[in-house]
């Protein structure tokens, strides 16, 4: 589904990713862990196409197509979704109207008809119920005055509405209490299927109890330096990153 081939990326002339390779097959969940400043958030921004980040070398291949030059919305139309650490507030645009615009833009890009208001309403009801999202949030301005947990749940709700092929959760769990964490994880798990994949970027092993990964990667200094199964996350939780840093720095 997604192949990152020797990606080098920089922001404001600072090299962040320094030859990163990663392959994600359909149905797989990959967790990315690593110390602060390793390049985790850059990785998600680069896949989603944030223009501030310059991809200086390497190819991002999504379903067999090189997407390096595609705009963020074109990547989103192809099925790439990224959940934000800090979702944006948009006063004057309700969550419902935002989601409508998003879903219909995707459908139009796919050559499908827009959903009728009735169909849209049914879909919104169904998905918001899964996320235990209070109806009153839907008619309020997007994320305006929402708590951190509400914003994250709203992110997963939007993901559920858009049904992406590849979901990137960028530290979605940071700052969530356990109830919110469970709801978010449920939302992600409900989308799991043999065709869908996810990248879960996290500092904490805790999330991986709920969203069980197939692989755990350690990102350090712009590269993936270690890959293992879910037990690697437990080991990292226990021992921290210093032993990995030492291993790499001594090479």
């Amino acid at each position: 589904m997604l192949k990152l081939k020797n990606i080098k990326a920089s922001v404001e002339d600072k090299d962040i990713l320094k030859g990163l390779n990663l392959e994600i097959k359909p149905g797989e969940i990959h967790a990315i862990m690593g110390p602060n400043g390793a390049g985790k958030s850059t990785l998600s921004s680069v896949i989603a196409g944030k223009e501030k980040f310059s991809v200086d070398a390497g190819e991002i291949e999504f379903e067999g197509e090189v997407i390096n030059d595609l705009a963020p919305e074109e990547r989103a139309h192809k099925g790439i979704f990224m959940s934000f650490q800090h979702p944006i507030e948009i006063p004057g645009v309700t969550t419902t109207n935002f989601v409508k615009a998003a879903v219909n833009a995707k459908r139009v890009a796919e050559g499908k008809e827009e959903l009728t208001p009735g169909e849209m309403l049914r879909l919104i009801k169904e998905k918001s119920a899964l996320l235990e999202l209070d109806r009153k949030f839907l008619s309020r301005s997007l994320n305006e005055g929402f708590s951190g947990g509400e914003k994250k749940r709203n992110e997963i709700f939007q993901m559920a509405m858009l049904e992406p092929k590849l979901a990137i959760l960028d530290e979605t769990d940071s700052g969530l209490d356990i109830d919110a964490l469970r709801i978010v994880a449920n939302g992600v798990n409900m989308l799991r299927s043999p065709e869908r994949s996810a990248i879960v970027i996290t500092h904490y092993q805790r999330l991986l109890d709920y969203i069980v990964p197939d692989f755990v990667h350690v990102l350090y200094d712009g590269r993936i330096v270690k890959t293992g199964g879910k037990e690697l996350a437990l080991e990292l939780e226990e021992k921290g990153y210093d032993w990995i840093k030492e291993e790499i720095d001594n090479k």
Binding site: G49, A71, M82, I88, I90, G92, V103, A105
Partner: peptide
């Protein structure tokens, strides 16, 4: 730009994303 990226990531084309931001900016005066 960060807000524009957020909306475009949600499938919303640049023109619409800009429009939403402009509305968000102006709406307080309503």
């Amino acid at each position: 730009d960060d807000a524009l990226f957020f909306m475009r990531q949600r499938c919303i084309p640049l023109k619409e994303a800009k429009a939403m931001l402009m509305y968000a900016f102006a709406s307080e005066a309503l």
